[in-house]
Design a binder for these strands. Structure first.
Lengths: 241, 241
DNA sequence: TAAACTATATCCTATACATGACTTGCGGTT
DNA sequence: AACCGCAAGTCATGTATAGGATATAGTTTA
């Protein structure tokens, strides 16, 4: 009758799944690594192959690992198109899409604002790295990004790679061991600021789309705060329900 | 070596899944119906329970059916909160959400515009039903909806229920046997028109969010075209990646 | 009457095993 | 050197079965 808030038991395959995820999150199996085979893992945990399989299939559903018949099971990286487009939802109105090209605007180390600290779960005044850039789609300036990162997780990023790559998430993963596994986005329509208007080639006050994203790691801890201001003349934000 | 564009074989469980989906789409098992048990279905199709189970689990993942231990497997309806909120992505900025209340603006039978015909996959000039309404969230007018439906699928809807219910998808399902199974949405920021501004209590030209949705049935055929114009002062469009 | 128990039906978990499909590398052949 | 075929390793599919968890209805019991 009463809904049991604390489930009375926890399936074995979920426990296995947790153990596997832990080994991935800890870096023991870093992204790009092929993990042991079904049979080997099942034997090492002393469970049946079916049980281990069910655990792995949940990780596939969560985009943590990718399995391929005949090859093996690999921890997902951010360099495949599939994962890359998962975090890029802008489509041209005719249904096509292109990859954005970035132009840097600024990069510096400073203290977090109150909003930034709240979104990233940091102490007020904690050190953060702030990056801003413009991104062009097919040569047309389309969005301005304001990115904030916890400095402690990305030591040296305020200076180090002289030129930032186009896709930051791959850099986070390769250079700092920070993998973006999930993200929440909240979209609102706002009037373009004078600055954004200049970068985006629109008039101040023109309507633009503002996307506030918080990107998280495997455990759900915030890694990145990103505010994208987008002109939707040629592109729109696409979503499947 | 070459990627086989036409897969060389089709797994049994997918064939079973198609057969099950067909029986649901055809109306043989209408929403709310409990379908036969695993064992019965497996026997009737002459496959193992495990195979049938895999087919059903895919339908669960696609929100077509809901399985509950001890009870059975039921075809999903649009009257549960879970399914309802799947198609309603507006959240208050503090993270809470409320259910909208609707006020009718108009309803009529007319010929489709070119855009409407294209979006719904109809012949130019086909008969459609157009519905417009304002929706309040916590007493504040927040969005204006312009809804277009193929008249042939919804006979009499231009007049019949004197008062439209708050959640239309449940009505589509109950009265017309039309179940919305998927939807695509495209979001852009636009300037509020004079009309929308009046309904939403903003100034003409103020930035508002425009959501263009095409809702589809089990097979992917368009059922409904809906353009929502939203003021994002208090609410935002939320998405999980 | 109300609570506890029982029986049954359902889906869920877990195991075991056989076979098929796919990838890769190794040898041998040309 | 290039090609071909084979073998081994991997995940995918399909079957079979036993027992557990959950829901419901009916029966017994206090």
């Amino acid at each position: 009758m009463d809904a049991p808030k604390f489930p009375t038991f926890r399936p074995l395959y979920q426990q296995i799944k947790d153990l596997l995820l832990e080994r991935i999150a800890s870096g023991e199996w870093s992204p790009g690594t092929y993990i042991p085979s079904e049979a080997a893992l099942a034997a090492s945990y002393d469970v049946s192959v079916g049980t281990l399989r069910k655990a792995l299939n949940e990780l596939v559903a969560e985009n943590v690992v990718i399995r391929q018949q005949g090859k093996g099971t690999v921890v997902a990286t951010h360099d495949t198109d599939r994962v890359l487009f998962r975090f890029f939802n802008l489509w041209r109105h005719d249904g096509e899409r292109g990859l954005p090209v970035s132009r840097p605007l600024g990069r510096k180390l400073r203290k977090a604002t109150a909003d930034e600290a709240r979104d990233l779960g940091l102490e007020p005044g904690a050190k953060v790295i702030h990056i801003s850039r413009v991104r062009d789609l097919e040569g047309v300036p389309t969005l301005v990004e304001q990115i904030t990162l916890e400095a402690a997780r990305f030591p040296g990023l305020e200076k180090d790679p002289e030129v930032l790559p186009n896709t930051l998430y791959h850099l986070y993963q390769q250079r700092f061991g920070q993998t973006v596994a999930h993200a929440d986005e909240s979209l609102v329509a706002v009037a373009a600021s004078a600055q954004d208007a200049e970068h985006l080639d629109v008039q101040p006050g023109d309507p633009v789309l503002q996307i506030r994203r918080i990107a998280r790691d495997y455990q759900g801890t915030p890694i990145e705060r990103r505010i994208s201001t987008v002109t939707t003349r040629h592109y729109g934000y696409f979503n499947q329900l």
